[in-house]
Amino acid sequence: MASLIEEIRALGTQALADIRAAASLEQIEQVRVAVMGRKSRLTQLMRELGALSEDERRKAGMVLNEVKDAVADELKKRRAALEAAARAREIAGQSVDITLPGRARLFGRRHPLVQVRRQIEEIFISMGFSIALGPEIENDFHNFAALNFPDEHPARDMQDTFYLPGGWLLRTHTSPVQIRAMLATTPPLAVIAPGRVYRADADVTHSPQFHQVEGLLVDRRVTLGDLKGVLEAFAHRMFGAQYQTRFRPSFFPFTEPSAEMDIGCVICSGVGCRVCGGTGWLEILGAGMVHPAVFENVGYDPEKWTGFAFGMGIERIAMLKYGINDIRLFFENDKRFLEQF
């Protein structure tokens, strides 16, 4: 009996030594089969326990279980260590050249004019304006007459017009949307109207097709001071609060008083350069109080309602914002240009 227990303990000691000596996952599996397998001496002894007296069986069984547990535990530990070592070796071989370029996928961009348009829209929408749209092919009433451009008035020369057969025309500004919006609703209203416009004019700063955003606010007691407040806030959000703004008197048939807004030159910061003609100022938009004649033309009572309107060229804003010197680049769509935005 004592010898049986001796043997069990010796087997255990030997097994633990074998497990510790195993150098690979294959070896440890061989050791496991040899020590714990069905044909192993330990398993065999387990079966032989049945032949012993109950007291002896209990004693030997306890020792046997003790040894089995110790062996199983050691197997588990050793296997985990070997697996960790194997993973570590694998990981060590998995290093990549991190400087190789990442996998290429197309990278899409919105056109700079669209980016600027959306930025302008967002600024005014956040102030409470909503978007209104109108057709590009217009008639004289919406584009000129209702906007207080009398027939044969020199103010019409401010905008070289493309005409279509039948007396129609390509809108020269987004201002006809003002008229359409006012005819469609009753005051108060606050809208902006982005869109494509056309003038028969082409050089480095003029394109026969360009884009504008028009704005219109009509309510009780809207003042020129309100116009200044809204447009200054716009300019500061568009270009940054570091730029000063100024309002100069100007003329548009559909607003009175009329103004143009300048910002401090974004190129030279007001010192004077070629872009700003040495003045330190850049014109960015035209604006004014809605002319009473325009209200009369759409059936609004100018004694009851006042309002302001403004309009800006998206190309001009984009050119200033990005330092683009030729308006034609926007419409050439050279990939090298598009990929910069």
Binding site: M127, G225, K228, A233, F247
Partner: peptide
């Protein structure tokens, strides 16, 4: 002329 901020019609 002092710049003011109007209440926009909702």
């Amino acid at each position: 002329i002092r710049a003011t901020v109007p209440y926009l019609p909702v």
